[in-house]
Amino acid sequence: MSDLILSAHHLTKTYTQRSGKFGFGTTQVKALDDVSIGLKAGTTLAVVGESGSGKSTLARCLLQLQPLDSGEVIFEGKDLAKLSGSELRHTRRDLQMVFQDPFASLNPRMRIGKIVGEGLLIHRLGTLAEQQAQVIRMLKRVGLSEADMQKYPHEFSGGQRQRIGIARALILQPKVVVCDEPVSALDVSIQAQILLLLKELQQEMSLSYIFISHDLRVVRHIADEVVVMYKGKVVEQGAVNDIYQSPAQDYTRNLLNAIPGRKHAAMAST
């Protein structure tokens, strides 16, 4: 067990929804139904699955950004729900998240330099000059420039905003990063650059990733292990090669068969 840096045990989460003619009735949406996963230190665990299957809910619950109905999340041997406020704040530095919706997660009135550097400021890491230098270095590593520090979120393209979210999470040199669709808005070149950056940092500082993605080609490149979710449940879990070569579940097989572009020669051969 000791090689697991983050593990989740029997997580459940049910949302209650208004429904019916005037919204007086309620419907229950079971977003997490007895989900257990384990992330080994220094590795990448990909979470794939249908839209609406509970991946983002899992991500938020792992980081205690949302309360669970039941179940526990253990980080470095500690139950996150049992930490005191100050312990949790301290731990936050080690547990970072890249959000699925970049625009909604960036404060529209803050300049990018401040957004990316805020964590350093909060956790008092280095002098102001050092923080500034780190922000510049991080922006460059995600393919942005020093001049971008002065701009506001709305002045960027979708893919540029996604990279701002990545820079903000990685600059803190956390231990675990939960990435929710981190490269979905990037062209294939920048995508490769970001994936290589994630791998590089993993090697440098033994970072561990939970990597949520619907792009099975990307998952194949980045993941050591894969969890397949379907309707709030984990339906399959294992080493990436095993799952791609011999998927045990119909749903996983359907996913692998639906990768687009298979019929096109240029896509198949490259």
Binding site: V188, A192, Q193, R217, H221, V240, Y244, T270
Partner: peptide, 14 residues
Amino acid sequence: ACVPDADGKKPLKP
């Protein structure tokens, strides 16, 4: 040339 392949053999290269 950067398009990732489905079987993960081609190295990532921006």
